[in-house]
Computed example of a mutant assay.
Amino acid sequence: MTSFPQRGRRAAISTPAPATPPRRRRILPRFDARQTFSVIAMAFTGGMIVATSVPALAVTATDVEQRASVYAPVEDTVSFTPQTVEVGSEAVESTLASEAYDVHEAPPPIVSQVASVGAVSLVETGAVVWPVQNPDRRSSGFGPRDAPCAGCSTNHDGVDFNPGDGTPVVSIADGVVVLATENGGGLGVNVEVQHNIGGQVVTSSYAHMQFGSLQVSEGQRISAGQQIGLVGTTGQSTGPHLHLEMFGSDGVRFDGFAWLAAHVG
Results as ranks from 00 to 15, higher is better:
Met209Trp: 03
Asp255Asn: 10
Thr15Glu: 13
Thr84Asp: 06
Asp136Trp: 10
Thr234Pro: 00
Gly251Arg: 09
Ser98Val: 10
Gly88His: 10
Ala258Ile: 05
Gln113Ala: 04
Arg221Glu: 08
Ser205Met: 10
Ser139His: 01
Thr77Tyr: 10
Val264Cys: 04
Ser98Ala: 15
Ala41Leu: 12
Ser237Asn: 00
Tyr101Asn: 12
Glu218Tyr: 02
Ala127Leu: 15
Ala33Phe: 09
Phe211Gln: 12
Gly143Tyr: 06
Gly265Thr: 11
Gln210Val: 04
Asp157Ser: 15
Val159Ile: 13
Trp259Gln: 08
Ala91Asn: 01
Val103Lys: 11
Arg253Thr: 14
Ser14Met: 11
Leu28Asp: 11
Ala12Asp: 11
Pro107Thr: 07
Val64Gln: 15
Trp130Thr: 06
Ile27Ser: 14
Cys152Pro: 02
Gly126Ser: 15
Leu260Gln: 05
Val252Tyr: 14
Ala51Ser: 09
Gly151Trp: 07
Val202Ser: 03
Thr2Glu: 14
Gly8Thr: 07
Ala115Leu: 10
Val159Tyr: 12
Ala19Phe: 10
Val176Lys: 01
Gln227Asn: 06
Glu105Ala: 14
Met1Trp: 11
Ser249Phe: 06
His104Glu: 14
Ala33Asn: 07
Thr77Phe: 09
Val117Tyr: 00
Val202Thr: 07
Asn162Phe: 01
Ala100Glu: 15
Ala17Tyr: 07
Gly175Leu: 00
Val87Gly: 03
Leu122Ser: 02
Pro148Val: 02
Asn134Trp: 03
Val92Cys: 06
Val74Gln: 15
Met1Gln: 12
Glu75Asp: 12
Val231Glu: 01
Val39Pro: 00
Ile13Gln: 14
Thr36Met: 14
Val50Tyr: 12
Ala33Gln: 08
Ser213Gly: 04
Met42Thr: 13
Glu65Gln: 15
Glu218Met: 08
Arg34Val: 10
Arg26Asp: 12
Pro82Ala: 09
Tyr206Ile: 04
Gly88Pro: 06
Ala106Tyr: 02
Leu242Thr: 05
Phe4Thr: 09
Ala106Pro: 07
Glu90Ala: 13
Ala119Ile: 00
Ile27Gln: 15
Val92Asn: 08
Phe211Glu: 11
Ala72Leu: 08
Gly232Cys: 01
Ile49Trp: 13
Asn196Pro: 00
